[in-house]
Design a protein around this nucleic acid. Sequence first.
DNA 1: CTGTTAGCGCTTTCAA
DNA 2: TTGAAAGCGCTAACAG
Lengths: 353, 353
Amino acid sequence: MRYTIHDIARELGVSARTVGRVVNQQEGVGEETRKRVEAFIQEVGYRPHSGAQSLRRQASDSIGFMLCAPADQLPLSQDLLTWLFSQLYEVFGTHGKFISFDMNPPVQNGVRDYARGIWQQRFDASVIGGAFYPNDTTLARIHALGAPYVALARLPALPEACTGAVDYEEACYLSTRYLIEKGHTRIGVLQGLPHHVPGIERIVGYKRALDEAGLSYDATLIKPLSFAPKNLTNQFHRLLLDTNVSAVVDASGAQDAHSLREGVRMGGRMLGRDLDMVVWTYTSGAVVLREALAHVWLPVRETAAESIALLGDWLYERRDGPFQVLYRPVIYDTPQGEEVAKPKPVFEVHLEE
Amino acid sequence: MRYTIHDIARELGVSARTVGRVVNQQEGVGEETRKRVEAFIQEVGYRPHSGAQSLRRQASDSIGFMLCAPADQLPLSQDLLTWLFSQLYEVFGTHGKFISFDMNPPVQNGVRDYARGIWQQRFDASVIGGAFYPNDTTLARIHALGAPYVALARLPALPEACTGAVDYEEACYLSTRYLIEKGHTRIGVLQGLPHHVPGIERIVGYKRALDEAGLSYDATLIKPLSFAPKNLTNQFHRLLLDTNVSAVVDASGAQDAHSLREGVRMGGRMLGRDLDMVVWTYTSGAVVLREALAHVWLPVRETAAESIALLGDWLYERRDGPFQVLYRPVIYDTPQGEEVAKPKPVFEVHLEE
DNA sequence: CTGTTAGCGCTTTCAA
DNA sequence: TTGAAAGCGCTAACAG
């Protein structure tokens, strides 16, 4: 049998209000009555129905995590997921919150409503991961609600949104400028997330560096990438068919030395001799590709950690409203050390080339 | 503004029931009315309040995952967590369920109510991970509710509970018997989870093998382990102070070659010369310790996969009620191959030695 | 085809 | 210190 507050009240010959008082640890119950009610609750293992509770309170004791793009369009690595998991637990789990994931919302007539849990008022606070489509309109709606949330990505159309992001524009600017300074004039870009904001930002940064150096932009030097197997290698190879290309920015984010080397090999090149690279990584000081001229570190974890902590402050009223966190990437000449392994994705990606 | 079904009804000059019909895709709404309502809902991004919904329906569109023991008493590895995550997504996420984790419920007057989410009726189905305390009474209560759940662990006191477990009794029996057959008569056990059911099962299996061989039991050969740093090494060392101990079962589950070697070294022994070991692993065919005489594979993932799939069948009415899944461990002589790395825990463990 | 209405279990206001 | 009752937003039985 499943007890309600009324059942308990009836059983003990008190009113529902009294039971409610005990359950919610409120004042105004006689010592003796309280003891009796507590004992009974303990005995039958009563806990208030969370749906009914959330109907009256404006809270659910639950934190939501969702992805603003399908998981197969931004392969979440196992490392990042477990890291995120432990962050969410550190900030919210220690307050007894449930952490609720909605990474695969059903697609209704072509629309993937990643914020459904928010509309349904399932969460006290929400963390939105991923990369936005440039035409996203959902975030504005979330923002308008006024409830605590943070997007771990930027959306230029909505600069006042609560975000924690890495500056990909700057990353590509730094990478390109670095190669220009080394004397290169025809620089290719392996462009991750071409249809998403961070992919577009890459190109903006690239152009800025070219502009600054008085070099002209050639769209054929940008190779948009999908997450299909071999795509990185093939696009890289295609890029190197242009024999004037002497340097490449690996802005794939794949941290996949093997695929890069394959591309170089297929292109009949040799890194350090007739090809220079700047390679992106998400790990501070990590070496992705030994032969790279330089690496650019994108501090995504650091950004996310600060953002989630601030979201906690917002929820627990230690600060007020939305915030914008923007971390700058760091470029460094390749240090000594082992190459890091290519991250393993959490979900399998089912995409054709 | 947050619309309710009544707001929408008023706005459009229809009844709340009609709006409800459209929202829930039910029959009995005129084509034209339906279109109007749908358009409005789309426009304002209306979604029914999940609390109110769960109050009326008996469903929440959410699957719960909880640990029946504190996370620092059974360090969850990163690998296992991401694996679990993707399993839950495969079975339930594809049906649009939210996956809700409650791994750190607040402790109220000494009691850690790991099933709080179930009492609160937050979940359509629940997965309980971890290892039970022998005196657990919560599971019986969960079982009595009749709602779909599975415990990824056994509880001897409640054999009819819905469980998916690995036979740790058998694992320790096999390990011990193997060493007896190799001529050993004084065999130590590094006992993982000593206060939990699987830890106790280890001893039962150990005794069974001794009994069969007519050997007597000596409690000093059992070294209970905590997850404190160095504890494995120290307990191992302590065990080896008994110079008659010629063989040891590593039933720690730690898959930690380094700590084992440290223990051997401190004990002044040498594996393969004056000490033989059987080492447990959770990965099929994996080599944890090259110098081990044999490995025992505990198919936890395989068990969990089948159990979670069956839970899905139960929830989606492709099968009926509770089930018991029990996988047997497999012993094998160490094959060739690289040693696997020690798994990384998701959460830091804060325990003193 | 559409509307009225009675709860689901809880919180909270107000009254006793 | 305790109780009666309204109502949160939704669903479903029942009327029209």
